[in-house]
Design a protein around this nucleic acid. Sequence first.
DNA 1: CTCATTAAGTACGAGACTCAAACTAATGTC
DNA 2: GACATTAGTTTGAGTCTCGTACTTAATGAG
Lengths: 388, 388
Amino acid sequence: MRQRSTAGTERLRRSNTGAVLRALRRLGPSTRVELARDTGLAKATVGVIVADLEEAGAVIEEGSRPGVRGRPGRPVALRGGRFLTLGLELNVDYVSAVVLDLAGTIVASSSRPGSAGEDLRDLARTTLSEHVGADTRLVGATLAVPGLVRGDNATVAWAPNLHVAWPGVSDLLETLVPGRRIEVSNDANCAAYAESHHGAAVGVAHSLYLTGTVGIGAGIVQDGEVMRGGAGFAGEVGHMPVGDSTALCGCGRRGCWEASIGLHAMLAAVDMVELDTPLRTAEAVAVRARTHPGVRAGLERVGRDVGLGLAMLSNVLDPEVVVLGGYFAPLGDLVLEPARRTLDERLPSQMQVRPDLRPSTLGIEAAALGAAERSFGPVFTGELELSA
Amino acid sequence: MRQRSTAGTERLRRSNTGAVLRALRRLGPSTRVELARDTGLAKATVGVIVADLEEAGAVIEEGSRPGVRGRPGRPVALRGGRFLTLGLELNVDYVSAVVLDLAGTIVASSSRPGSAGEDLRDLARTTLSEHVGADTRLVGATLAVPGLVRGDNATVAWAPNLHVAWPGVSDLLETLVPGRRIEVSNDANCAAYAESHHGAAVGVAHSLYLTGTVGIGAGIVQDGEVMRGGAGFAGEVGHMPVGDSTALCGCGRRGCWEASIGLHAMLAAVDMVELDTPLRTAEAVAVRARTHPGVRAGLERVGRDVGLGLAMLSNVLDPEVVVLGGYFAPLGDLVLEPARRTLDERLPSQMQVRPDLRPSTLGIEAAALGAAERSFGPVFTGELELSA
DNA sequence: CTCATTAAGTACGAGACTCAAACTAATGTC
DNA sequence: GACATTAGTTTGAGTCTCGTACTTAATGAG
């Protein structure tokens, strides 16, 4: 896992190694010839790169696939279990940790209530001690937070809902993985990244992730990359003036989208009370909706306002897929159907492909999973070299 | 201007050559040592690259800058006049052409009324014959159109306002520059690119361009790159539900932003009539506003609705700078001031830096200029090699 | 069973590139 | 005029990719 700064011919090798790794992630187990065709490199070059990766323990040769004429190819696959990343999430009322391996397998995934730096540190320590040992290499670690992260990917400029002294957390992180810098990233951006790599938007270049809790947040993926904006504020869509223009928002203004479709607005619409977590609350609402038409009507109203805002966002961003997470996921079509109808009404009829609205399939650990995946980013771009 | 497909060590050289060219564009005339410092390459490498570029005619050595201790550096600068690109625009009622050189100097820039393929071809032919000769090399050409361009950067999926048979234009282009493919691009995206390279958003990584004519369009620049969206529809913001929800839009729906701030809505607000072009119309409105409070009040209303939509866009995209073009440019602060006030009211107070609203400084040829600049893109990334 | 056929993977030499260090060149300072 | 200082070039070593030729491992026809 050396990080070299030389810009010599080794940079070319690292870049090509990244291309091979990306191809393996995309294609699954592949022979050297298949990798050569996909990457455009020469057979010989791929052979050398694969040999290096094998020695480093990053790929492993599988049994040959016979059946066709000629010498059978010997597929290589990304090797799981050896190179790991840690993804953490520190949220308002819970902390999560995910350990991911190079093959894309989720090695560990856990959450627990809590909101203090100590909770996070304990969870991370436990997770690390259980899954990271002498025969594994920790490639990187990323922490997802519900706040505005500066361009340095390390410090938080603004986190209104996080009642933790930031310098404290920052120090905790240093003690957690000594000598290794932990990147910090926005939670909605991480969740969007998770959806585009492991969730409902796999293989989609342009997607949008919308999460509903007390607040509303979005993560924008354009061409496979998370969009941050000038100050890291991109995707903070909760306070767009959308929906009921008289609804009072927590921010003091009226007419924010959040005031129409945030968790509390949804609960008011169905006349129910909040349980311990947004997900559990939404599950209870979904159950009650089966028997109570009034609840369905309330969700219909919420869904229309969701669709109204998505019409805005689709006009601006033109995503192929919109993934709805947070409390929207358990409610599924109860909210998505009216949203789709509103979207159909409001989108320009000439727009070729309406974005596909899908509920999130990842659970509460979505952001932590995305954080872990992001730590693999430098490996797949070739910035970071894997070594035994 | 060979385009090589080999992925050998020459790719590394091309990439490094691109880095040197970018540095020269950004820093202006620089010595080899300065370029080495900026790019991170070794002095020797920069020396070889600069020698190659000089032989190709892409850079030229300037007089030395003495005055300090030691051997004086001999700055090299991008050489204008030799490598050129052609930018074209085919719009509803005019056609434009811009010739740009490698140094970023606008060699030629002209517009004329017209909307047919023949008008475009004639203008392009004249421009080319006047400025592209035996001692110059045409690097590329790009055509900007008010419509939806497919991912192939060559064909148009949808251009409602363009009353030209598209296959016809496509054929015309082939005859124009034989053997060279002309890229096609969206006009708002081109104008946004022009503003970020030559206009009011130079040096800004995240900017937004908003143009007002009969319709409203936006171009989004994120990290210096134009954002296209899944189907090339990103930035088609005219039909977002913003502003007067009762206003009837040309699309048949009510409440589109365009119906509140499009040229016709603005004229209705100030009770004036349309002249031959949006720019000329807006100039007349600006003159009349000096003496007529009613006109100023009308523009105030339009400006507030501009600000309302920009609040949406800023929440989603977080741009550092918003450039307002089209009819907004001549009106300047008459529209921008109320827009700024509305933006201040509607943006989350925690947002660190409010986007800076600036009128466009580029005229009617903005899109054609951006189209020309885009043709230099592959040169500065190292995809396309300049050769004598 | 033998051998041609087919396709995957490897060995090797040529060519291109970057880099660090040594070297040359040009200027100001004392 | 010697010397310090900085710019740029030369040189030799080390890497990398590539095309070609070769080896290896399977199938199928006779």
